[in-house]
Design a protein around this nucleic acid. Structure first.
Lengths: 222, 222, 222, 222
DNA sequence: GATGAATGAGGCTTCATTCAT
DNA sequence: CATGAATGAAGCCTCATTCAT
């Protein structure tokens, strides 16, 4: 862990991630339930695999209500994707805006992603795993931009770190940023598949440390 | 690059990857065409998104012929997955069996994956991107095992390196292995989406170097 | 005819047969239409020969609605079979519960079956002709039981008649019961094929008398 | 049994029924195998339910050979139907041409049908059970004529019996004939379904006696 | 807002038929 | 004759979307 890095925001971030917001100003309760359910079902079955019926059932609402609030399946899922990415990017942005050193910020970002996974695995799955899995039509939309946004934030942290001499000069910011996200994602995939552990709390903690160590120090013995 | 690492095998590996084998002993030409086409379509649209009609058209055969050679869509795609993974794992195994130092072997593995991407992007997409995206039914089958196999090979290289003092002792082999695969995958995703470059040859080279550097040395400035 | 045998029930039985019931408590109109149509198409083309599209068209509903109400073609047709058999068996039961002599009851059963044929040929075709024609999977289910049920009711009437001395002692109840059903069925088949008449009202009446006479008295001249 | 009725023909009839003929003059062995197999598969699965592949496999020949000998599935199955009916009708004709009294001839016909069932159930199933089960297109062809032919032969026996005073005058020849066939068929169906016995030799014998008794004497106690 | 019945295009799969060898 | 690969029309079923209440 990196004490003091994300002082009290931590809880706020996590809270945000599990019950997404984006203007709760009088938002109908059932609309929220649908979005909530959509995250879960979407995360479990993917874009093509999830059915409107599953989402409605999971949300405990009538079939047709989904279409009362959303024009189409695509719109609903793009909405979900956008929301989840917004949460994720918000957190990255918050961390990036802090005063910590660049490596500490990167570590905090890893921590955040993996921590969210503990409390709301669906969110992470949708955000990180859906990037490559979603059909081109959708991807060219908001998801691509969101992914690019996340990479950019991380890349910016890296560049700043390079300017301050905290980050190795030879690191390519964009590629490194993508690599960091990928390391997080695949480790979690390994967790899901039971390949790197049993998805218990200790294993999540191990993954967190492992990924941060890999990212910061690499594998070479000095 | 890592000169001399995968001397002449390199070409063989790549050749294998682009025109998959697994016992060409009198295999019908059209069956091969279907598998070929399936890799491509599968890679482009994913498991749920690809249609048998697309595969047949891409292969230049009649719709029904797919069902002459494969019992179902699921069987076909599981076959594809298994074949592609076999190629990938073969390569990892070959590299792992060499005499190079562990970090060099890891670098060679990155090189291989990214190099294959240059000549046969579909293979890599199917192998690395499909791990998380495939429905549970399939995943619990051969894909999970293949993924686990790949992680295990890499983890073994890491352990051996630790014994020889080439790899940092504190690295968790399995998590690191997964992280390495993830870094490769997401960088390539970034390439596909145009986020980290334009997928031209130079960009692929940049990604290769970037991922290897990240993996071996991490981001920290010493 | 057998005057007074099935006094006023007659109309009720026929009514039941043509517009099957089984709990009309708020049953959707279109569901009923589908079942209605299914009886007709099923009777005309048999289990394998009838298409869902035919049933939907006949019912005047959209294709998909069939699957809104029934899980599969098999479930739909099993439902149809069960319903029609229930009507048929109900009638046999009603007749069997009456006070008439056993031969009169048997005659009434013949009358009923053939009379129903006049007003709702599809019902009889489905019930009697489908017994042997349905695939094994289905047959081992409800149809077999329904057929057995019908045979049992008739056999019981025969046994009772034997106890009272109304029926020849040497008759094997089960075989005779099956034979009676078969005589009815094949006579009707002959009617359908135009072999024993033209399916006009008089011919139906002739068949009725002919079958009853055969069953009760046999062909021998005393 | 009816001693002396169908003296030595009996064996010839049965033999004919199990290995159908119709001009074996140099008929290719495999063509015969296909027809043989078709009878079996057809009997088991019905017209719509049987597949060319099943027949070819059952016959132990290649798929395409079926189309070398028969223009289409329909032609093949019509051929099968015609052949089987020919055997059946030949037997009826032979019995009818004998010198026995009409009731004895009818009994012999029952005996024959049920006896054939013991040695070649498929034949009987195809002949009697397929009458009503085959789609209209086919039925309007040879099957209808064959059925009509069988009914006519039986009806003629009945008429002759009426002229000689052996058969009840009031019996309608055609209807009675159809009824007799139906009684046979449904009893056998009951046997197949296990409703009237277990299809063992004794049960077949019981069915034979039961049907003959029903047909000749009816159920009434005199 | 809320419900769920109704619609129909589209996908997977089967299978009769053809054809090259 | 014989084989079995190849074809494609047609059927079952799913599911996004609409609509009447």
């Amino acid at each position: 862990m990196l004490p003091g890095l994300v002082p009290s925001q931590d809880s706020k971030l996590l809270q945000a991630a599990s019950s997404v917001h984006l203007g709760d100003g009088g938002e109908p309760e059932k609309r929220r339930a649908i979005l909530h359910a959509a995250v879960k079902v979407f995360a479990e079955k993917g874009y093509e695999g999830c059915r409107i019926a599953d989402i409605a059932k999971q949300a405990g609402v009538a079939y047709g209500l989904v279409y009362h609030y959303f024009r189409s399946k695509e719109e609903l899922l793009e909405h979900v994707l956008a929301e989840q990415w917004a949460v994720f990017i918000d957190a990255l942005e918050t961390i990036s805006a802090g005063a910590a050193a660049a490596p500490d910020q990167l570590a905090a970002m890893c921590d955040f992603a993996i921590e969210v996974y503990r409390t709301a695995p669906a969110v992470v799955r949708v955000v990180l795993l859906e990037v490559a899995r979603t059909p081109n039509a959708l991807r060219s939309g908001s998801t691509r931009q969101a992914f690019e946004g996340a990479v950019n934030i991380i890349a910016r942290v890296i560049r700043r770190g390079q300017e301050r001499g905290e980050i190795r000069q030879s690191a390519d910011p964009m590629i490194t940023a993508a690599g960091v996200l990928g390391a997080i994602e695949m480790s979690l995939t390994g967790l899901v598949l039971g390949v790197v552990g049993a998805a218990g709390d200790e294993d999540v903690e191990r993954v967190k440390r492992g990924v941060v160590d890999l990212m910061l120090g690499g594998v070479s013995a000095r």
